[in-house]
């Protein structure tokens, strides 16, 4: 019985993540349009796009890894979602959290990108190869401040469990204020994680013909789009759990995640695209310095 409830809860979690993630992407398109003085598509445009992409016929064959790449992305985003507590202290949305899940998530989050790199490499498209190189370089860039921020919090509170960190924040207040340097480093790393402008060097449509996904159309593109939106919600929920103490109900969760989502979106709207080395230099500059400072702060305090 317990197993059944957990399974149903996991399915419900994934469906909620899909709906909310797609809605956020739609709102993003609408806000982008309003900033550019356009009317813009309706906010449900992304659902229609996904439905159309899934109903397209797809007959492209480059090899086994090419077919597995969208599955890797989906496994990574859904798996990460199931290890993150969605709401605080509720039997709904059960998750698979255990001691040490923060370290596990650090590794599991990059699985999708690596699978995608293998799949896109097999398509043999030169644009895809350039996109992969850029994406992995950028990942090396933003992973460093991101890991430093997380390790700083692990040191500060002697725990590697997200649930424990959430419980600690109930007593001591949000980690956002307990270790502001770590929060700043993590937020700057988030700009790269979301791959919006100025860090959209991976899938730059104008110069790379959308990069790694250039040979993927139809159902595969629809699957990637869905997994991308689930992953966006996953990352935002992880940030809320780690720095804002988690949410007690779904309305608070939506408000907090959307507030966080505004940061990469609005920063992207006013920024042109970086070159690859500029992007890496950005992440190895102030974000890394802030991460180091957060580490020192967490050891000293």
């Amino acid at each position: 019985m317990d197993f059944l409830i957990k399974t149903l809860g996991a399915i419900a979690t994934i469906i909620v993540a899909f709906i909310v993630g797609m809605l956020y992407m739609g709102i993003n398109r609408k806000i982008t349009a309003r900033v550019q003085n356009r009317v813009g598509p309706p906010v449900w445009q992304n659902y229609i796009d996904a439905l159309k992409l899934v109903s397209k016929k797809t007959s492209v064959h480059h090899g086994v890894m090419q077919h597995l790449a969208p599955a890797f992305l989906m496994i990574s985003s859904m798996g990460t979602l199931l290890f993150i507590p969605i709401l605080r202290g509720q039997s709904w949305f059960p998750n698979l959290s255990y001691h040490g899940d923060l370290i596990f998530i650090l590794y599991f989050m990059v699985l999708g990108s690596l699978g995608m790199a293998l799949g896109a490499g097999q398509t043999g498209n030169p644009n895809a190869a350039i996109g992969i190189t850029r994406g992995l370089s950028q990942m090396v860039g933003f992973e460093i401040p991101w890991v430093m921020a997380l390790v700083a919090m692990m040191i500060q509170y002697h725990t590697t469990s997200i649930s424990d960190l959430m419980a600690i924040q109930q007593q001591h207040g949000w980690l956002m204020f307990q270790n502001p340097l770590a929060f700043l480093a993590a937020i700057l790393a988030m700009l790269g994680m979301f791959r919006y402008s100025p860090f959209d060097i991976v899938g730059a449509p104008a110069e790379l013909a959308s990069g790694p996904i250039s040979e993927f159309g139809g159902k595969y593109l629809g699957l990637m789009m869905s997994s991308g939106s689930i992953f966006a919600f996953t990352k935002l929920t992880l940030y809320v759990d780690l720095f804002m103490g988690g949410a007690s109900n779904i309305v608070v969760l939506l408000i907090e995640t959307f507030t966080l989502y505004l940061i990469p979106m609005l920063y992207g709207l006013v920024s042109p695209r970086y070159r690859t080395e500029q992007a890496i230099r950005y992440f190895w500059g102030w974000p890394t310095v802030l991460g180091l400072a957060a580490l020192v702060y967490s050891v000293v305090i």
């Binding site: 550019q36 356009r38 159309k52 397209k56 449509p205 959308s210």
Partner: peptide, 22 residues
């Protein structure tokens, strides 16, 4: 495609490669 006539309000947007295009 851009601000003046804004075809995106009808769901029309550019695709980068033939594989993704309708």
């Amino acid at each position: 495609m851009t601000s003046r006539y804004d075809a995106e309000r009808f769901g029309i947007r550019g695709a980068a490669t033939p594989r993704q295009a309708d």
